[in-house]
Design a protein around this nucleic acid. Sequence first.
DNA 1: TGTGGTTTTGAATACGTATTCAAATTAGTC
DNA 2: GACTAATTTGAATACGTATTCAAAACCACA
Lengths: 330, 330
Amino acid sequence: MVSSKDVAKLAGVSQSTVSRVLNNPESVGEAKHEKVIKAMKELNYRPNAIARSLVKKQTKSIALISGPIHNPFFAETTTYIVNYSKQRGYNTNVHFEVFGDNTSVFNDVIEMQVDGIILSSILMDDYIYDDLKNLNIPFVMFNRKHNEPGNFFEMDNLLAGQQATEHLLDLNHKDIVWIGGPLNMSTFYGRYEGFRKTMEEQGLPVSDHNTKITDTSENEIHNVVRDLLAERNRPTAIFAATDSIAIYVLDYLLEKGYNVPEDISVIGIDNTKLSQHHSIELTTVGMDQGINLGQVAIEQLINDIESKNQHLTQKTYPTKLYNRSTTRAI
Amino acid sequence: MVSSKDVAKLAGVSQSTVSRVLNNPESVGEAKHEKVIKAMKELNYRPNAIARSLVKKQTKSIALISGPIHNPFFAETTTYIVNYSKQRGYNTNVHFEVFGDNTSVFNDVIEMQVDGIILSSILMDDYIYDDLKNLNIPFVMFNRKHNEPGNFFEMDNLLAGQQATEHLLDLNHKDIVWIGGPLNMSTFYGRYEGFRKTMEEQGLPVSDHNTKITDTSENEIHNVVRDLLAERNRPTAIFAATDSIAIYVLDYLLEKGYNVPEDISVIGIDNTKLSQHHSIELTTVGMDQGINLGQVAIEQLINDIESKNQHLTQKTYPTKLYNRSTTRAI
DNA sequence: TGTGGTTTTGAATACGTATTCAAATTAGTC
DNA sequence: GACTAATTTGAATACGTATTCAAAACCACA
């Protein structure tokens, strides 16, 4: 490990001067400047970011706590977040949520002294929220949010749930099953409430019978669908709370020889890139094209980090139906 | 920022003792131990990982330089790598390759003093290889490799290229177009060579006419396919060098009203999860199910970091055909 | 040549932790 | 109770950088 001291010795200057060449080149004289540069090259010197972080009290890195990237929604946001952060000079520490308990993830993040945190993975009532606030470093939530106020960026989940349900109702479906994740995640909560309210407005019952809570894994989705198909009165439509779930549902239905939408309609939410693929053509609900929640959130986060402004930013984007090929009237 | 000094003061002990409670609890007496623990809780003390890294000369973090995760292959490897590293106590710094020039990515990585590097994104003749070696920290390559020897994990790309080509030849295709990325990436090079050799063994010509080099972006793939379809003699089969490319090709063909495989056959390589989806059923070539290159590579890397063993590990896994629904005889 | 002001430089210090080394305390034995 | 051995503790130092502060060097001008 060659340090700035080594460079200093070789160049015949003090370590301070080496440091200045790096951070304040115009403040050092022509002659020494050249000597230092030459010595750096000769020794192949690389400044130690860890040491710099310690003294400057900023690591130039952020933590991303993301949902699983087999879900194309999170693949898209993660890509944007990592690349944008790099462009702004920040490294990204990526963590994937641990379903059910993110405590250990948060502990890692906190010790790493990141300059900011961007997370999609928080529960509405997550006790971790207080820790996060006490850290006194900027953090933003995207996709999901917490009950307490904070910076967040989300789609209008309630509206999305309504629109998806209305679409199915318009197509005369009555036996609709909602498949989603835990209701203490704001996305699922909103999408479920949209479903429930719209159904009940039409006098249609919503109960355990037609709402299935899962951990959103492929396996469990398949199990749920298998059970559904085994019932005497099969649903005519499935409302998957995310595109990712919808795509698992489709996979299983097709595998078992069902035709979609002839035998059963499927709708998702998110309007991911994959849902648009012409092999899939998933009917879904999503925001205007071009809005990437990861994008707006990371821009906000880095601006917050650098300007230290403290006012909250909360955005809830409207949604609309993308009517494609996996739903039809009965 | 509450430091170990603050804890020490409150507990009435020295900072050394606080440090020992953290790292060597059995070496500190009962009474002081308790006092320290209590003070830590009271102050909500969190050790500063940056400071620890500086003195211990290890950051407990690794860098992943990955191909784009819209390619499901990389989504799968990234997931495994991040989760496994965490389990072994390492944070993962994720970087996505910059097509054409990864210099700035490597600079970031080097300065961050990571304990190891795992990368899929290196060119066969990448000059960065020397820098990497000179760093004297463990690194492993997966998927792609460099000309110089090093730790790597790959599929047998040459074999894969042969098998895909043979499959198409067996189906009587002669007008086959190969679409891939730059040939200085070992994956594309091997897959292309497998294609070229197999074609030429059958006396079929391989030239610019039927080999299309792209940057593998959706846009450019679409452009290539558009041009192909516009030609008087359309190819009867497309050999996409990755599943990701194949899936873009499929999308475009379907969008333009073509039927696959009736109008044109498409084969990929990688056997990604997505290729197995029943909406897609992509014929492809891949390794035995269950082998995740990211998995074997990250296990090796962390073992190398912790044992400092220096012998090379090089694995080239055999491949086989996964005959699904996007190819047929003519 | 001398004065005052400006620029360039280096010594010293801080960041928060782990660790070495020697001092202090405790335990164990007769 | 005295001595030795074992355990527990704290002071000092190191890690590699940025920064403060004062000294040194340079400059312009009379």
